[in-house]
């Protein structure tokens, strides 16, 4: 079956969101947004708060409302990335090796307060997945005296899916995306992680999922992430009525 890498990642995100009731999507996250809107097609009760939604934005108190909601425990799932992500699930959005990145955004708060966080970074390389981050924007775990509601649930990259093992504070390689090999993942990951004897392939999108992605999901994504939608689904994006 032919599908785009972005479509595989979006269906994987939809599965990771699972039975959550309220998922929030922060700045510049078109693939997590695509996964969330795909899941909403199958589960209309899912509430999606898209920070950057250009029309019909869910917030009426301005940009602090997302954080107030999370602080109260009203957000089940959030997404974070990183210029660097390490084996203890620490993320760095600030600077590494003389390079400056945009900054930490709300990560240092959302990682603690959202029910669970899905780490997502398309680039899977030793440059990104490092043994130890150069700067901790947000820590992957906290000592017991620090109040913390949530933390990492999984790490999804362009090559593989890792599950987070809270007790061991280590990642477990859960699946490798179709066409990839476990050896290649080991070679491209700068941190150590656990691995089963047989690593399954990440399940691809079903024909039904692809129909939804290319129809109503593409439309809502194009409204909010026009560049991304053009790249994945082309200029002739579907209209709301298809």
């Amino acid at each position: 079956m032919n599908y785009a890498k972005e479509e595989l990642l979006a269906v994987t995100i939809a599965r990771l969101i699972g039975d959550a009731r309220h998922v929030a999507v922060g700045a510049a996250s078109p693939i997590p947004a695509t996964g969330a809107f795909l899941l909403k097609q199958q589960n209309p009760a899912l509430r999606i708060s898209l920070l950057q939604k250009r029309s019909g934005n869910p917030f009426t108190e301005g940009s602090r409302e997302l954080f107030d909601l999370a602080g109260q425990g009203r957000i089940d799932v959030f997404f974070l990335g990183g210029a660097q992500i390490d084996g203890e699930a620490n993320i760095n959005l600030v600077a590494a090796e003389g390079k400056r990145f945009p900054g930490s955004f709300g990560s240092a708060f959302m990682y603690f307060t959202a029910g669970k966080t899905i780490l997502f970074r398309e680039e899977h390389s030793p440059r990104v997945l490092v043994k130890k981050v150069d700067y901790v924007s947000a820590p992957g775990w906290s000592p017991p005296e620090i109040e913390r509601r949530g933390g990492p649930a999984a790490l999804l990259t362009g090559k593989a899916l890792f599950a987070w093992q809270t007790e061991k504070r280590r990642f477990l390689l859960e699946s490798v995306h179709p066409g990839g090999k476990a050896d290649d993942i080991r070679a491209n990951t700068g941190f150590d992680y656990d691995m089963p004897a047989q690593v399954p392939a990440t399940p691809g999108p079903t024909p039904a999922e692809l129909r939804l992605l290319r129809g109503s999901v593409a439309h809502v994504i194009a409204e909010n992430y026009p560049e991304f939608a053009r790249r994945v689904w082309g200029e002739a994006r579907p209209t709301a009525t298809t």
Partner: peptide, 10 residues
């Protein structure tokens, strides 16, 4: 006061 953030290099 605000929750979270502790342990961040920020």
């Amino acid at each position: 006061p605000l929750r979270g953030v502790l342990g961040s290099d920020l």
